[in-house]
Design a protein around this nucleic acid. Structure first.
Lengths: 230, 230
DNA sequence: CTGACGAATGCTGCATGCAGAGTGCAGAGT
DNA sequence: ACTCTGCACTCTGCATGCAGCATTCGTCAG
């Protein structure tokens, strides 16, 4: 586990973050500094530092003096997506003003991933494409603070990655949002950026996220219905 | 300096943050852990933790292994204001959907601060009113992640508070943005929120920040002109 | 049997020890 | 006089010691 390159606390940070995101450290779990230190064969100091970082980023939360993996309710995820709507909208606007030929081409290849025939094991590949697509837009936007906000949001949302993937792509989820919807929305964003139309780009990005939010809310309704026994 | 209530590292954090914001620790300054520890009569541990927190929030930056107070260029501030545009727009939209009578009244009182006759020593009071006005909107919006983003942005921008106040209100700055402009824009936001019109509220907030950005860019042009001897 | 009080344990925050890396200065060699 | 090398100092990161706080468990009394 321990190597000499990056500072120990950063390695510890990455490790714990991955465990949170992957669910090995499940939501609600109380984080015990000593445990992690023992597990990673380091002293408590770098672990403590890593925990401070994680807390700052919202990947851990203080609950009565104890650090816990936050239990994000769907409401929280939706709140995060509202932020994403604002961020993605702005990023797309800026990207439409600034994008160059090379990045545009790259953006197109990410878009194409959604055209391939559907296979079950493609889900994670699709997810990666989705991340790449949006991330490239942020890079092109050239606003480092905006990029940072986006990363914070993505990190938090990714705690729910597994769930949202399933919901978004599972035809049994009771909602009718298909990969074609996503594809169409991405295409609209791409077209607007490609035609250097900032207003249209922002609106397309916002529409895309609004659809995701709508879908999340519908999924929540379905889940709630199931819980009351419908 | 040391009290027993909040954790030492949080006290240290606040102290250093205030020194950065107030300019006592000027941009570019290299932060020396031992110095601060000695100055505050604490050990290096809580200082180290505080520095990690400050770095996470962008109030310190890593520069070749050394921690420095970041030197924000005007371009950075403008980037931050673009983010604010997105955030304030969203917050105003959400606030317009959710605000209650009591908060609305409070919002109105903050608005009124801009109607008082102009006095030089009112500048900081105006600034506080401005902060309160916008902050209340965020609280009403009821999206904790959005609130957090806003706080991060405000914290960073406030490193430049002094400058922006001067530029915004100094009639000699060469631009013609007056407090009446700000007042009018705030009123538009208020009116839209009061009439529960989310679209109008978002647009009014965005317009407000766009004007600030425009002003910042103009001020920059003026400064650049001065620098080349015009 | 239950409730309350006290002891023991576990965990965290702060202090300090220790070692490695970077920097600057000085002295020696050309 | 200039440069290169080496030594000393400084600072940071990690480890560990220490003490206070909370929680829990056990025991004793009602």
């Amino acid at each position: 586990m321990i190597s000499r390159g990056p500072a120990l606390r950063d390695q510890v940070y990455s490790h714990i973050r991955d465990r949170i995101v992957s669910g090995t450290l499940e939501p609600g779990r109380v984080i015990v500094e000593v445990e992690l230190a023992a597990e990673l064969n380091v002293s408590r100091t770098p672990v403590s530092n890593a925990l401070v970082m994680l807390k700052e980023r919202g990947l851990l939360e203080d609950d009565g003096g104890k650090l816990k993996v936050p239990i994000l309710k769907l409401e929280d995820v939706i709140d995060l997506y509202w932020c994403r709507m604002a961020h993605d909208g702005l990023a797309s606007r800026l990207a439409a003003e600034r994008i160059g030929a090379k990045d545009l081409k790259q953006l197109e290849t990410y878009l194409r991933a959604w055209e391939t025939p559907e296979r079950e094991d493609d889900l994670s590949a699709l997810w990666v494409s989705d991340l790449n697509f949006h991330h490239l837009i942020y890079r092109v936007a050239g606003n480092r603070h905006l990029l940072r906000f986006s990363e914070l949001t993505t990190e938090l949302v990714s705690v729910y990655r597994r769930n949202t993937i399933r919901r978004m792509t599972d035809p049994e989820s009771g909602t009718n949002r298909s990969r074609n919807d996503v594809r169409t929305e991405h295409e609209a964003i791409y077209e607007a950026i490609a035609s250097r139309n900032p207003d249209a780009a922002e609106e397309a990005a916002r529409y895309h996220i609004r659809m995701v939010i709508q879908h999340l809310e519908q999924a929540d309704l379905v889940i709630q219905s199931e819980q009351v026994g419908l």
